[in-house]
Amino acid sequence: MIANLKYRIIKKVVHNSGVVELGFDAPEIADYGLPGQFVNIQVSEKLPHPFLRRPISIHDITVNGEVCFLIKKVGTGTKMICDSEIGDELSLIGPSGKPFTMPNANCTPVLIAGGIGIAPIYFLLNRLLNEGFEPLLFYGAGTSSEILKKKELISSCKVYFATDDGSFAKQGMVSELLPQHIFENSGEFCFYACGPQPMFKSLAPFMKSHNFPCEISAEENMACGIGACYGCSLKTKDGYKRVCKDGPIFELSDIFEEQ
């Protein structure tokens, strides 16, 4: 079930570093949306530019049916979406794509977020907590002020932070924390990650050496967003796959094994 409707913005929060959280009254998307899925948001009805929609992963779906997105301004399109105000209506197509796979009951889910990659990881975290799992979160950002929802995260699970500049917690990439802390915990692990390409690349050898399963949320420029145009194809070990339809959730080793 994919909705293609206009929905009203009912919440707007401006976080640190200009990241904006928008909440939509979108019951159809709330009913079906799962962690890892995305919604293709129309930037503007009126202007011929920016022309394409922006695929944004679902950040949260609240109990009262509010669908939230955590959006970083990276260009004209995301800036215009972020400039929307409460009461504005935007056209949303979604929920789209393949969600994260929920772990087996005996598994400890380990969540890894880099920068704005916290957006879908947060939704997954909440669902895992609701399902009774005890997830661990590794969360890295460029600098202290880019870490979002810090208090909330700390109060809900065990979090290991890192910043590129060392302004908060450990200096370095979040992937560097993994080997050091993961084995403080015992049992079976399954990993979920969303972040920039260098983070995925640095995770690949660790996951491979321990034979850990690791699902990642991939990104590519998109046009149709529903699997018809083959514009967002990504190279995998099984050939090109569409990020919008075959993904955006892929097994890390399917994409980064060869690199």
Partner: peptide, 14 residues
């Protein structure tokens, strides 16, 4: 198909 990226947005088009 071709090597990605396959889509780039340009002013008023793609």
């Amino acid at each position: 198909g071709n090597k990605p990226p396959r889509i780039v947005e340009t002013p008023c088009g793609m």
